[in-house]
Simulated scan of single mutants.
Amino acid sequence: MFNGHKAITYLITLVWLINGLCCKVFNLVPRHQEIVETILQVHNGRPLTISIGLAETSMALWIVSGYKRKLNAITQIVIITSMNILEAIYAPHLLLWGKWNGVFALLFILVIYTNLFLLKKRAF
């Protein structure tokens, strides 16, 4: 039987893992480091970018652990909102989708919210 809640949970996890590990820690998308350097006004943002990437990777692990799911979802929403506001203010020229980044962030937030607070209830 297909479990939509579980599938979406893994997709959300994958987003955090790819952005944290691949884009930031492994530096496969150098633009992420440029964003960090621009927002924090530092010349060598590599250590900070790696730290942020490790934190995002930790978020992925927290999601799949299932520990305190509601707190996790709220934390994700706060982090995504904060990151996107800072990026829109300080580094809009570096964003992949420019002004549309906020729309995609909002859609991701809605997926997180719907998955935990609406779909989770139906999964049992």
Rank of each mutant, 00 (worst) to 15 (best):
55 A>W: 00
116 L>V: 12
81 T>D: 00
57 T>I: 07
21 L>D: 04
82 S>G: 11
60 A>K: 01
75 T>C: 13
104 F>H: 07
75 T>N: 07
52 I>V: 14
23 C>K: 08
96 L>F: 13
103 V>K: 03
47 P>K: 04
120 K>N: 11
91 A>D: 03
36 V>C: 11
8 I>E: 01
3 N>G: 13
52 I>G: 10
4 G>K: 14
21 L>H: 10
3 N>M: 04
49 T>Q: 01
104 F>K: 13
103 V>I: 13
43 H>Y: 07
121 K>E: 10
74 I>D: 07
13 T>R: 07
94 L>G: 06
88 A>M: 06
39 I>N: 06
103 V>Y: 00
72 N>E: 04
105 A>T: 09
93 H>C: 08
10 Y>M: 08
71 L>A: 14
36 V>D: 08
26 F>W: 12
54 L>H: 04
98 G>W: 03
54 L>K: 00
62 W>H: 10
115 N>R: 04
40 L>V: 06
92 P>Y: 01
76 Q>N: 13
10 Y>S: 03
36 V>R: 08
18 I>C: 12
72 N>G: 02
124 F>K: 09
88 A>L: 02
31 R>G: 09
97 W>P: 02
22 C>S: 11
106 L>F: 13
55 A>M: 11
47 P>E: 07
113 Y>V: 10
78 V>S: 02
76 Q>A: 14
83 M>S: 06
98 G>Q: 12
3 N>T: 09
74 I>C: 11
34 E>K: 11
42 V>H: 05
11 L>D: 02
31 R>Q: 12
20 G>R: 04
109 I>S: 12
104 F>A: 03
36 V>F: 01
112 I>V: 15
61 L>Y: 06
43 H>T: 15
76 Q>L: 15
76 Q>D: 03
120 K>M: 08
96 L>N: 13
84 N>H: 15
10 Y>E: 03
18 I>N: 10
30 P>M: 08
62 W>A: 14
58 S>M: 13
89 I>P: 09
4 G>R: 15
19 N>L: 08
18 I>W: 05
15 V>N: 05
34 E>Q: 15
7 A>Y: 00
121 K>V: 08
57 T>N: 01
91 A>W: 02
38 T>W: 01
69 R>T: 11
103 V>P: 07
17 L>D: 00
41 Q>I: 10
97 W>M: 12
53 G>T: 07
21 L>A: 08
101 N>K: 10
24 K>E: 07
98 G>D: 12
109 I>F: 06
123 A>T: 14
46 R>L: 11
120 K>F: 11
4 G>E: 14
8 I>Q: 03
1 M>K: 04
46 R>G: 02
31 R>N: 13
111 V>H: 00
50 I>Y: 03
108 F>L: 15
114 T>W: 06
111 V>R: 09
59 M>I: 15
45 G>H: 01
87 E>V: 02
101 N>A: 12
25 V>H: 00
26 F>N: 01
95 L>W: 06
25 V>Q: 00
56 E>Q: 09
33 Q>N: 14
123 A>G: 06
65 S>P: 04
38 T>Y: 00
67 Y>Q: 03
102 G>H: 06
115 N>M: 09
6 K>R: 11
47 P>S: 04
